[in-house]
Each structure stands twice: as structure tokens, then as C-alpha cells.
């Protein structure tokens, strides 16, 4: 294992994050605050409670997930797409590295960034609502696994994308709808029965449900279901990344 290389990639990627620190932190803080104002105060004041949780608090796990998913995907996809785009990928390919070091470096940095942003959002939320976490270990586990899995997904997208347009396409057309329809701002029990069934095919439902359970002890789907979904997704992404490097797909000619 080439440890200095992992460190070099990780530090390099984190440096990019800190170079744009204002944009990286202020923008999620502002958007989260806006969500609280609109959903928590304006609309939430007309909704009592969902599953016994005040609406303002109820949306916190969904909001964190929403941002963490988007940030993980966009950071990781950009991180590996940019070297491809400007040609500096030659250095990664000619260095004594296997895919393990490259993935740990890029995905690790992207996951760290979204973890930092997720934490900031949680802290911001405490200014608006009373928050307590019933199962902190599960909460951290869900958060970590989500950051890692979606950073892996972003990495795959970054390798797949042949243009900046394609790079934006999947987050915009796939991830945003899945997250919004995944129960970020509502319990899927509020939906008509037919739509509840459809929703069960949305993997994000399991993530948000499990994450929310860690906070309040209430869930839309079983905890086991959530845990298996996130682990399965993580394993799937790992397998795809492994295949990409084994075949050199879209990297090595």
C-alpha cells in the first residue's frame, strides 16, 4: 500500500475544499436556514407533529441527508473528473498506485467534506429546533456510510462522464428527485397506499428512514431494511469501482 500517495491525494483534495471554504460552508448553511424558515416555520406551524415529532425537528435528518448526498456526489465526481478533463490523470496512471489508493484518496476526501458539511447543518439546525439524538452510534454509522457510498457513486460518475454536462446530469435528473421523493420533508405514511408501494423502490427512502430513526426512534421502514439497503448500495458501488479499475474503463486506453 502506497500510504504517501493516499496522503498526497487526500491533502490535495482537501486543500481545494479549503481554498473555496466560504462557498463550501456558507452555501449549505444558508440553504439549510432557508429550508427551516420555509418548511419549519411557515409551513410547519400549520402541521402539528409527524409520528409525535415536531415538524421542524422531523425534517432535520432529511435535510442533512439531502445535503450530504448531493455534496458527496458532486465533490467526488468533480474530484476525479477534473484531472481527466485537464489531462493530469496521466500522473495518477503512471504513478505506482493501485485503484485502492486512488479510491481511498479521492473518495475519502469527498466523504470528509460532506461529513463536515453535514455536521455544520446539524449545528445550524440546533439554532432553529430542539434536537436530541436517541441512537448516536447508529446516527454516526448511517451518516458515515452514506457519505462514503455516495462519494463512491460520485467517483463512478466522474469516471463515466465525458463532459461537464454529463457530470451535472445524473445529480440533477436522478439524485435530486430521489431525495425529494425519498421522504426528506414528509413521512411516506402520509402518501396514498399505492404511492407508498412505489416509494419502496426508492433507495433513498431507506437511508432517510434509518437516519431519522437514529434521531427520534420512529421510522417508515424497518431498521434492518435501512441497514441492509445502505450496506448493499455501498457494496455495489465498491464492486463497480473495482471493475472500472480492473478493466481500465474510460481511464486507460
Amino acid at each position: 500500500m502506497n500510504l504517501p500517495a493516499i496522503k498526497a491525494i487526500y491533502v490535495f483534495e482537501m486543500a481545494r475544499f479549503f481554498r473555496t471554504i466560504l462557498q463550501s460552508i456558507i452555501s449549505p448553511v444558508i440553504s439549510t436556514s432557508l429550508y427551516f424558515v420555509v418548511f419549519g416555520s411557515a409551513i410547519g406551524s400549520r402541521i402539528d407533529t409527524v409520528d409525535g415529532v415536531s415538524y421542524g425537528a422531523f425534517i432535520v435528518p432529511g435535510l442533512v441527508m439531502l445535503t450530504v448526498l448531493m455534496q458527496s456526489v458532486s465533490n467526488a465526481s468533480f474530484g476525479i473528473y477534473f484531472p481527466k478533463f485537464i489531462g493530469t490523470i496521466y500522473e495518477l496512471l503512471s504513478a505506482p498506485l493501485s485503484f485502492i489508493e486512488i479510491v481511498i484518496g479521492y473518495v475519502g476526501a469527498a466523504a470528509t467534506k460532506s461529513l463536515v458539511i453535514g455536521t455544520i447543518i446539524l449545528v445550524t439546525a440546533t439554532f432553529f429546533v430542539d434536537l436530541h439524538v436517541e441512537h448516536p452510534v447508529w446516527m454516526i454509522a448511517f451518516l458515515l456510510l452514506t457519505c462514503l457510498s455516495f462519494a463512491l457513486l460520485g467517483f463512478i460518475l466522474g469516471i463515466w462522464a465525458k463532459s461537464f454536462e454529463q457530470l451535472q446530469l445524473v445529480p440533477m435528473l436522478v439524485i435530486t428527485p430521489l431525495v425529494f421523493l425519498g421522504g426528506s420533508f414528509y413521512s411516506i405514511k402520509m402518501l396514498p397506499p399505492a404511492w407508498q408501494t412505489v416509494t419502496l423502490f426508492n433507495p433513498v427512502v431507506y437511508l432517510i428512514s434509518g437516519f431519522r430513526w437514529a434521531f427520534f426512534g420512529v421510522a417508515d421502514v424497518s431498521l434492518m431494511g435501512s441497514a441492509l439497503a445502505i450496506l448493499g448500495f455501498f457494496a455495489l458501488c465498491l464492486a463497480i469501482v473495482w471493475w472500472i479499475f480492473k478493466t481500465g474503463w474510460r481511464i486507460r486506453s
Binding site: 498526497a8 491525494i9 500522473e91
Partner: peptide, 8 residues
Amino acid sequence: RFSRGLFG
């Protein structure tokens, strides 16, 4: 420095 690190 980054290049040096990449090469271990």
C-alpha cells in the same frame, strides 16, 4: 510536492 507523494 504532490507528485513526490504520489510516487510513494
